[in-house]
Design a protein around this nucleic acid. Sequence first.
DNA 1: TTCTATTGTTTCAATATGAGACAATATTAA
DNA 2: TTAATATTGTCTCATATTGAAACAATAGAA
Lengths: 234, 234
Amino acid sequence: MPLPEVSQFIPHIAYDSVVFGFSKGKLKILLMEYHDTGWFALPGGFVERSENLEDAVKRGLNERTGLKEIYLEQFHTFGDTSRYRPEVMRRILEANGHLIPENYWMLDRFFSIAYYALIDYEKVTLMPDALSDSIAWYEIDKLPDLILDHGKIVQKALQTLRENLDRKLIGGNLLPERFTMNELQAVYEAILGQKLRRTSFQRKMLSLDILDRHEKLFTGKSHKAPYLYSFKTH
Amino acid sequence: MPLPEVSQFIPHIAYDSVVFGFSKGKLKILLMEYHDTGWFALPGGFVERSENLEDAVKRGLNERTGLKEIYLEQFHTFGDTSRYRPEVMRRILEANGHLIPENYWMLDRFFSIAYYALIDYEKVTLMPDALSDSIAWYEIDKLPDLILDHGKIVQKALQTLRENLDRKLIGGNLLPERFTMNELQAVYEAILGQKLRRTSFQRKMLSLDILDRHEKLFTGKSHKAPYLYSFKTH
DNA sequence: TTCTATTGTTTCAATATGAGACAATATTAA
DNA sequence: TTAATATTGTCTCATATTGAAACAATAGAA
């Protein structure tokens, strides 16, 4: 695969995405591991010359997860000069066997527009890109070191997600269509990083009038079966 | 004044700032009017090759207002292809008597990183830039039509300001060091676009333990004199 | 001295939240 | 068949917060 040409993309502009998923009671994000470097990074990419910014992000996420409809939110643009570390991208490209031209555009200073995405963990089919060995889930509190300022980007994403959780009622995007109240509470607890009172949480969620109640879920466990809920589509 | 050269700036990247001020009970923002076009726009600019993004915004605001310390918050980056309207910038530059080179960088597609600023109206000395006839205050609900998507940028700024008002307790940045409770309430009402209950507002503000109470303000009016308050510096 | 307008405080009702009790129930064990 | 267990959904009551209004204080004018 040849090196991307600057004629196709807007120089100096990139996006990075913090893709949140929820599984086994843990909040997780997607990380790429680059060939032969041991380096981890957020899934990101560039914007084509005639492409809307948000379409570029969706395109990139679709290529890596197979998902078409994704809950996406822009949260910050990172533009410090300290991000300019051409030797990092050089090493990544060289580790892929590329010969890098003089003044190659991908080694320039980049501004990164960061988005977070909330997706249903079970619906994802992970596909690495050309530069990466792998793309995989990592627990949010067991992340490896990340290149450049990607660690800071993750922290800012998590902070914004926490602030938006109640205001935008977005927790459900991390669950399948139908879920139990207990599962929803576990999502909230994982995002906020703290336990919530079961009865208060249930009362609050029901009083918001955003949930539909469906049939009971019989798990085979020896106790009362919980109802399944879904978010109202209105 | 010669045309800026691309060697000095990062191409494709601009910032726009929504500068809020408060005067005579009204929330206002700064707008530039370009020479001989009748066009209004937000104060904005470009980022120098070795300059931090936020430093560029502060530099631009300092050049136009004379202020050094400014409460500044990034709120969104606008990157739709519909922003690409080279004829707009062409007309602005030509109205200033410039001869525009082939493929001139300022006519390219730009991503704009938008910030809002909150400043003390009284402390500002307005200075237009080279392309503008004027820079002046406009009431937020009596704005003229703005170029490109600047109207949308203002709306998003206002929305973000409203959401952040209570969470970040930033209203005081629009007032002088010392102010009455009534003035603070007027700021909140102007931002939120709705009346607030005087007694609830006072109780709330005092209970937050963020204000210092100082001497009374004697205005000469025939009624009880209000106290002056200031925000705790902590 | 009285009156007026506005400020700071208090009161009481209405609403929301914290903490826990209680009843219902799906399955297992006796 | 019955009792035990774990978990769910609901209810209760104490506490905190907010809405709405009354009340007291006071700077200047009449």
